[in-house]
Design a protein around this nucleic acid. Structure first.
Length: 887
DNA sequence: CAATTCACG
DNA sequence: ACGTACGTGAATTGA
């Protein structure tokens, strides 16, 4: 029989993984009966992905039958010492099985055996019967089953992310063949299953030994070849343990499984059962995903009906004026980019009375116009900046915004924020509004429904969601002491940003085009040189083809590998450049190609034909630290470090002839914030005395005499250490960055902490706070949750610890410049000067030449007085006829 | 749609 | 023993 595809799933392991992947959202995944549903939800997500990817003809989910197995008989402590399964998780297992029943998927468990053994046995049968098999699990042990017919898919951190282990991938990732995984475990044991291997042997040595001798048995046959004395002693002493460990790790492929693979035919779900199950679990997203052919989408499952009135030119005058209690307002622009999106409708109302229309022209008439532009009518919206820019394009200036639900939600938790109102609502436990994807679709199929009822109900539900959620989110802000952050920083900030975006910055297209033709010529030339050096033509832009040429054809030394092949990143090419001129040329080609495609061509594409400007969008609710980000185009990464790239800035010009570009930036704001937050007196002293902080650090960590000269190289190293501290240092990271040994790096860090004890205490305090409270905060009470801080995974935990140190610093710097920007608008309101851009620690303006002198005093004074720290802030300013010259 | 590379603070 | 610097966005290749 042709093409039989078997999907085997380790039910326990995947449910477990799903539970912890969605652990931080545990609170939101609760159905009306009070049952936790996060693991069930995650399991179902995984299932949908796998069913789609594998398109199986046969499926089975295997479960562990109980604690006692043939392995516990071999070794008492097998899986001993494990914490008891959380009740929030164990209560979900029966429902996972119910879900599988509704989906028409068989489950199986076998006393005395683990799910692994069932899977191993069935996979073996399947191989003999011509199946292609995919195994899904969260446990790497199962990769021992990978072969030409069987792939092992390991669910990674999320539930939808999957890593596929083929024999080749196992070899690459673990350095051994699938069959040798049991030998590895024999040597190193398994902590989570609680059995030891050979003392002193970890993953590295295990791979080494197995590589050399093939197997545990092979090692002992050649035990006398092993020269390392200690290692040999341990191997001899732990011989029995190693054999036992190997046995424990070996999956039994001949378990007495009663099922036959051919009986596992999968015919798809029982629709009614599945719908009923989803409804019981309150899985609205899954319900919505199901195809309800013939039924109108208004009957979106789980959504109750909503009343609305369609506004027209005739009845618009009858609208209430909302002056007493304010109103909710939602302006629908389907494209992400609100500077250019069409308008497709709006909703307004309050107190469960909703008015909707497709005709945004109505907004320009009384009474709507006055409602929206009056500061005295409180408006509740979702995404104030978007709404402001949209209305601005209709000739209205939005005023009187009280609640921006998107901003509130972002401040409460940056982690699962979204730009979709439906999603945000769901995150906060409100389910009476669909997501845009539900109603409009996605990708090529995305469209505004022609059906008025469908569309208008969606709009009305959005407005109602804002009304319903506002009190809850405001209360949340209050509890977090974030009301001031919201009222005095983020909400006013959104309007400042809106006006900067609308102002835009003028870009000289002819300048860019001239640069472009020059680059095109240069690229053609370098390209030919590279082809000659390579001896053939190939796509230089393809890392894969380039890797082939450099490392296979030309035989250059492989310095670093990536997941998929050879790394050809800058660092690698720089090392190669010493012996291979081609590397130098590739670097130069890459640099110019990057400038050409991203900046010359990229910017030309987004210059507005009417005003010769680019209008970026600042994303105010995206970063985890409180910084802004900039898109369409990104104006926060215009080249500056290399001269060729920097030339791009010549195309950024003032909007009037004779005007200037003026720029001010905070000098070392993050280190100053650190000096403030850590109260470290040595670091504070350096700033108070106006010293060069990197030089001061150099003197300290290198214990230099007061009169000794700080050479550029020493200063560079000290600078790297300062940066490292801000990023949440590790000896490894630092050693990589400045090319020293890890030991030396550790020395630097230790000395640094001795010299700046307050900084050491700060880093410890932040990590501790993250452990105790689950989050860290900036000066303005911006919050970042760090759920991974208690992770058992070293990597995740370490990352969370570094973030705990870095976020208050980076985030407080973001707070400060935001405050400065809000005050800046006011400070320059009577001038012609306009604030155009923010680049994290830098503000860029355009102004007539005669205002430059005033700006040069005013801007730094507003910036350095934005906040009162224990040390002074320092601001530097530059100006010139283009952005390039403002340096 | 993920991976790689490279631009910025 | 683990295996990393913090925060972003855009272009390109190649499944």
């Amino acid at each position: 029989m042709a093409d039989k595809r078997l999907l085997l799933i380790d039910g326990n392991s995947v449910t477990f993984k799903a539970f912890y992947a969605l652990y931080t959202s545990l609170g939101r995944f609760t159905n009306s009966e009070g049952l936790h549903t996060n693991a069930i939800y995650g399991f179902n997500t995984m299932l949908e992905t796998m069913l789609k990817n594998v398109d199986p003809t046969h499926v089975l989910v295997a479960f562990d039958a109980g604690k006692v197995t043939f392995r516990t008989k071999m070794y008492d402590n097998y899986k001993g010492g494990r914490a008891k399964t959380a009740s929030e998780l164990s209560e979900q297992f029966p429902y996972v099985k119910e879900l599988l029943a509704a989906r028409g998927i068989q489950t199986y468990e076998l006393p005395n055996y683990e799910a692994d053994d069932i899977i191993g046995t069935l996979a073996k049968q399947a191989e003999a019967n011509g199946f292609t098999t995919t195994i899904v699990t969260g446990d790497r042990d199962l990769t021992q089953l990978a072969n030409d017919h069987t792939t092992v898919a390991i669910s990674k951190k999320g539930v939808s992310e999957i890593e596929r282990y083929t024999p080749a991938y196992v070899k690459e990732k673990m350095g051994v063949t699938p069959e040798q995984i049991i030998d590895i475990k024999g040597l190193q044991g398994d902590n989570s299953d609680n059995y030891p291997g050979v003392t002193g042997v970890g993953p590295k040595r295990a791979v080494d030994l197995v590589g050399k001798y093939g197997s545990v048995e092979g090692i002992y046959e050649n035990i006398d070849d092993i020269t390392a004395k200690k290692l040999k002693e341990h191997l001899v002493a732990d011989h029995d343990q190693a054999l036992l460990a190997k046995k424990l790790a070996t999956i039994n492929r001949d378990a007495p499984v009663e099922k036959k693979v051919d009986d596992l035919v999968y015919e798809g779900p029982n629709r009614e059962d599945l719908i009923a199950f989803y409804q019981r679990m309150d899985f609205r997203t899954f319900l919505n995903k199901m195809d309800f052919e013939g039924e109108t989408p208004t009957a979106t499952p789980g959504l109750k009906d909503i009343d609305y009135t369609v506004l027209t030119a005739e009845n618009v005058a009858a609208l209430p004026d909302f002056s007493a209690d304010g109103c909710e307002f939602y302006l629908e622009m389907p494209d992400e980019n609100y500077h250019t999106s069409e308008f497709v409708g709006f909703a307004i109302g309050d107190d469960d009375q909703w008015w909707v229309s497709r005709d945004v022209g109505l907004l320009q008439q009384a009474p709507l116009k006055d409602i929206l532009t009056s500061a005295d009518v409180a408006k509740q919206v979702f995404d104030a900046k978007r709404t402001y820019v949209g209305l601005n394009r209709l000739g209205l200036t939005l005023a009187g915004v009280d609640c921006d639900l998107l901003l509130c939600s972002y401040l409460l938790n940056t982690y699962d924020n979204s730009n979709d109102l439906g999603r945000v609502a769901m995150e906060h436990g409100y389910d009476q509004v669909a997501t845009d994807e539900d109603i409009y679709g996605k990708g090529a199929k995305r469209a505004i429904p022609d059906d008025d009822e469908v569309f208008f109900k969606h709009l009305a539900r959005k407005a109602r969601a804002i009304e319903q959620l506002r009190p809850k989110l405001f209360e949340g802000l209050d509890e977090n002491e974030q009301t001031q952050l919201y009222r005095e920083i983020e909400l006013p900030m959104s309007f400042v940003l809106a006006r900067m975006e609308i102002a835009g910055i003028t870009v000289d297209a002819s300048e860019l085009e001239a640069m472009g033709s020059k680059f095109t010529e240069q690229l053609a030339e370098i390209e030919q040189t590279i082809y000659q050096e390579a001896g053939e033509e190939f796509n230089i832009g393809s890392p894969k083809q380039l890797g082939h040429i450099l490392f296979e054809k030309m035989g250059l030394p492989v310095i670093k590998k990536t997941k998929t092949g050879y790394s050809t990143a800058v660092g690698v090419l720089e090392k190669l450049a010493a012996d291979a001129p081609i590397a130098e040329n590739i670097l130069r080609y890459r640099k110019i190609a990057k400038i050409q495609s991203t900046y010359v061509e990229g910017l030309l594409k987004v210059i507005h034909p009417e005003d010769q400007k680019v209008h970026t969008r600042y994303l105010q609710t995206l970063t985890q630290t409180g910084r802004l980000s900039s898109v369409d185009p990104n104006l926060q990464n215009i080249p500056v470090r290399s001269e060729e790239g920097r030339a791009i800035r010549k195309a950024f010009v003032p909007r009037h002839e004779g005007w200037q570009i003026f720029s001010s930036d905070y000098s070392q704001i993050e280190l100053r914030v650190l000096a403030h937050m850590s109260h470290d007196s040595n670091m504070q002293e350096a700033f108070k005395e106006g010293q060069d902080i990197h030089a001061a650090t150099a003197r300290r960590i290198f214990k230099m005499a007061p009169d000794a000269e700080v050479t550029p190289n020493i200063r560079r190293q000290a600078k790297a250490v300062n940066f490292g501290i801000v990023y949440g240092i590790s000896d490894f990271g630092l050693s990589q960055n400045i090319g020293i040994s890890r030991k030396q790096a550790k020395n630097f860090i230790d000395t640094y902490f001795e010299e700046y004890p307050g900084v050491k205490a700060y880093t410890e305090r932040m990590v501790q706070q993250a452990h105790e409270l689950g989050y860290v905060e900036t000066i303005a009470h911006r919050r970042r949750y760090l759920p991974d801080i208690n992770s058992r995974n070293f990597n995740q935990r370490s990352f969370a610890e570094r973030t705990a140190m870095n976020t208050p610093i980076q985030g407080s710097a973001a707070d400060i410049i935001k405050i400065a920007m809000i005050r800046m608008e006011d400070a320059i309101k009577d001038m012609q000067a306009t604030m155009l851009l923010q680049v994290h620690d830098e503000l860029i303006f355009e102004a007539p030449a005669e205002e430059i002198a005033t700006l040069a005093k005013l801007v730094p004074s507003v910036m350095d007085s934005a906040i009162d720290l224990e040390i002074p802030l320092k601001v530097e300013s530059h100006y010139g006829p283009t952005w390039y010259n403002a340096k």
